[in-house]
Deep mutational scan, measured.
Amino acid sequence: MATADDFKLIRDIHSTGGRRQVFGSREQKPFEDLVDLGWLKRSSVDSRATHYQITERGTSAAL
């Protein structure tokens, strides 16, 4: 179930172009929650960072 923080984060991601790069596993937790909701997808993972991209469902949630 989505929380107020989830909606705040997806709106922030949407307003800044729909993509986010995250460093460190602790910082990934809120983004992984949005992946579980179907609002974000992991577009790539490298040794230092994970890249996320907003989905259509995420765009709808952000509006």
Rank of each mutant, 00 (worst) to 15 (best):
S47K: 11
G18I: 02
F31H: 03
Q28K: 11
I10C: 02
E27N: 14
L40V: 05
R11I: 12
S43W: 12
G58K: 00
E27S: 10
S43Y: 13
R19M: 12
V45G: 09
G38Y: 03
G18A: 02
Q21C: 15
E27I: 06
F7T: 04
L40S: 00
G38S: 03
A49Y: 12
D5I: 07
R11N: 05
S43G: 10
R26D: 15
E32L: 08
R20C: 13
A61G: 02
R57M: 14
F31Y: 15
I54D: 01
I54E: 02
D12L: 12
Q28S: 08
P30V: 07
H14A: 10
Y52Q: 00
G17A: 05
A2T: 05
I10E: 00
D12P: 01
S43A: 14
E32I: 07
S47F: 10
I10D: 00
T59M: 12
K41F: 15
E27A: 14
G24T: 07
V35N: 02
L63E: 08
G58R: 01
L40W: 00
G38E: 04
T50S: 07
A61Y: 05
D33Q: 14
A49P: 06
E27F: 12
Q53T: 12
H51Y: 14
A49N: 08
R19F: 14
G38D: 04
T55N: 03
S47I: 10
I13K: 00
I54Y: 00
D36P: 03
L63I: 10
D33C: 12
D36C: 12
K8T: 09
I13N: 00
D36I: 14
S60D: 12
V22E: 03
E32A: 08
S44I: 12
G58I: 01
D12G: 06
T3I: 04
Q53M: 12
A4P: 13
A2N: 04
L9T: 03
D36M: 14
T50C: 07
A2I: 06
L63R: 07
D12F: 10
Y52T: 00
A4I: 11
T59P: 01
D12A: 11
K41L: 14
P30H: 07
D33W: 12
S43F: 13
W39M: 02
V22M: 04
I54N: 01
L63N: 07
T16Q: 11
S43C: 13
E56P: 13
K29S: 07
Q21L: 15
S44R: 14
F23D: 08
Q53Y: 11
G58S: 00
R26C: 15
H14C: 10
T55S: 04
S44F: 15
A62M: 03
F31K: 01
E32N: 09
D5S: 11
I54F: 01
Q21D: 11
E27R: 11
K29H: 06
R57A: 15
D5H: 09
E32H: 06
L34C: 04
S43H: 12
S44T: 10
L34V: 02
R20E: 03
D6T: 05
F23S: 13
T3S: 10
D46M: 06
D36Q: 14
V22L: 04
T50P: 05
E56K: 10
R26M: 15
R26T: 15
R57G: 07
D33A: 15
R26V: 15
K8W: 11
R20K: 08
L37T: 02
D36T: 14
K41H: 11
A49R: 08
M1W: 12
T50L: 06
Q28M: 09
R48M: 14
A2E: 05
F7K: 04
T55H: 01
D5N: 11
R19C: 15
A2Y: 06
P30Y: 05
S44K: 14
W39F: 03
G17T: 04
G38A: 04
G18T: 02
F7C: 07
G18W: 02
D33E: 08
L37S: 02
D12S: 12
F23R: 10
G24S: 08
G18L: 02
F7A: 03
R11A: 08
D5C: 14
F31L: 06
G24M: 07
K29C: 06
D33L: 15
G24Y: 07
D36W: 11
L34K: 01
R19H: 14
L63F: 06
L63T: 08
H51C: 15
D5A: 13
P30I: 07
F23I: 13
L40H: 01
S43T: 15
T59S: 07
R42F: 05
W39L: 02
G24K: 09
R19Y: 15
R48Q: 14
A49I: 11
G58Y: 01
G17M: 05
F31C: 04
D12V: 08
R57P: 06
Q53P: 00
D46T: 13
R20M: 08
A4H: 10
E56W: 09
R57K: 14
I13C: 02
R26I: 14
T16L: 07
S47G: 14
Q21W: 15
K29E: 08
V35P: 00
A49F: 12
L40T: 02
G18M: 02
A4F: 10
G38H: 04
G17D: 06
R42K: 13
K41G: 06
L9H: 03
A62G: 03
Q21V: 15
T3Y: 05
D46W: 03
T50W: 08
Q21H: 11
V35I: 07
A61F: 05
H51P: 02
R11K: 11
Q21N: 08
L63A: 06
H14W: 14
I10P: 01
G24R: 09
R48D: 14
T55E: 02
M1K: 13
T59C: 11
I54V: 04
V45H: 09
A62V: 05
S60R: 14
L9M: 05
D33K: 15
A62C: 05
S60Q: 15
F23Y: 11
A49W: 14
K29Q: 11
L9E: 02
P30K: 09
V22Q: 03
H14S: 06
Q53V: 14
Y52N: 01
T55G: 01
T16I: 06
Y52M: 01
Q28T: 10
A2H: 05
D5R: 10
T59G: 04
K29M: 07
D6C: 08
G38R: 04
S15P: 00
T55Y: 00
D5G: 10
W39H: 00
R48Y: 13
M1H: 13
G24A: 08
M1D: 09
R19D: 07
R42S: 06
D33P: 05
D12I: 09
L37F: 06
S60M: 14
L9D: 01
G58N: 00
V45K: 10
I54L: 05
F23L: 12
L40M: 04
I10H: 00
Q53E: 14
G18E: 02
